[in-house]
Write a protein that binds this DNA or RNA. Structure first.
Lengths: 185, 185
DNA sequence: CGCGTAATTGAAAAGTATCAACACTGGTGG
DNA sequence: CCACCAGTGTTGATACTTTTCAATTACGCG
């Protein structure tokens, strides 16, 4: 449920010793926006500690949560490659530390470090593979079944996420989520 | 609605002159399965001509269409990087020609051709950026609004895709799609 | 012409959203 | 110590949307 990228994070830590000036650590409290959709940024981010949510909001202000991101997951790379504005917003859930790498240095690392390059490719492949089946599954099964699945993947999910976030993650209203939880008891 | 990758295709054609033995052309008729989900493959594919659909099917046999793929889009790369089985199935809609590149050669090109490497990264970034907002939009708006959006993006969509495919793409039943179409008249 | 597939439509059932009221909690200030 | 408040969570009633099921028609092709 919370995607992580330990392999990527480990390698970031290695690179940081070689190029310390490339990596800036930023700290956030809970409920802070790191990236806002439809804006221009100039850095890649990689989560060092903590949990964030990646979401799109529509004009009514409703959040559609794509996924929860944990340690080692990077974001901001899509915009670098595509040249587009940011696709989604990133907001912290817990306290969060991120490594921030300017696009300039990111580009350098991609060109000159084959291991890094391959890890970036792999992390993007995993990102796609993670997102795709989620919507399909949620669509094919009832809310109850989706909750059961959540409980299996992350038994402590209720302690980490607010009810609202869970509802937005499942793509249903809070009311429907509550009814489904009642039926499960 | 139909994602394409002209830039990637152009470069594939260039590479093909340099390494002709790397690229095998395969031809398919309509309604043929090129990739089947949860299987192991050993090649990357890039669409030369024609249209395919990328979908996941659940145990009831229902297809959940992720996206329609057109010229220059590649698939089979996620499995190469992640080492997982195929995420989704790919089935042709029209007649299709694909370039097939073995993972071995793909790997070689990634390591030794920086332009190719960057195009692969870009195409993956676009793939993510294309898929993400779709489910969000479909969820936030009514079926009618989604159809109107389809008509704007692809005015001739009805000539290319069956009603069933369109319903599966929008994530609704055929019955609901038909009712929405009636209401629009 | 007959067959299978695709498309259409109606009626009932199931699922979900909307709206509104109310409970619980922790923190703040009188 | 209590009253108040904001944020979060809970619940009921109703309206609306979508699915399910079933029956029927239209179309392309051997």
């Amino acid at each position: 449920m919370i995607r992580t990228g330990p392999e990527f994070l480990t390698y970031i830590e290695v690179l940081r010793h070689k190029y310390p000036q490339y990596f800036i650590i930023e700290k956030y409290g809970s409920n802070e926006v790191i990236l806002s959709q439809q804006k221009r940024y100039h850095s890649l981010y990689c989560i060092k500690t903590g949990i964030t949510k990646c979401y799109l909001s529509d004009e009514n202000g409703k959040e559609f949560i794509q996924e929860f991101l944990g340690e080692g997951v990077n974001f901001g790379e899509l915009e670098f490659f595509s040249g587009h504005l940011s696709f989604c917003s990133i907001k912290t859930i817990t306290n969060v530390e991120v490594y921030k790498i300017s696009y300039q240095y990111y580009d350098f690392l991609l060109e000159n470090d084959a291991v890094f390059n391959r890890l970036v490719l792999k992390s993007m492949a995993l990102k796609i593979g993670f997102k795709a089946p989620r919507h399909s599954f949620q669509h094919s099964y009832s809310i109850e079944e989706n909750i059961i699945r959540l409980q299996k993947i992350a038994p402590n999910y209720a302690k980490i996420f607010s009810k609202n976030d869970i509802a937005n993650y499942l793509g249903v209203t809070l009311r429907s989520l509550n009814r489904a939880l009642l039926l499960l008891k």
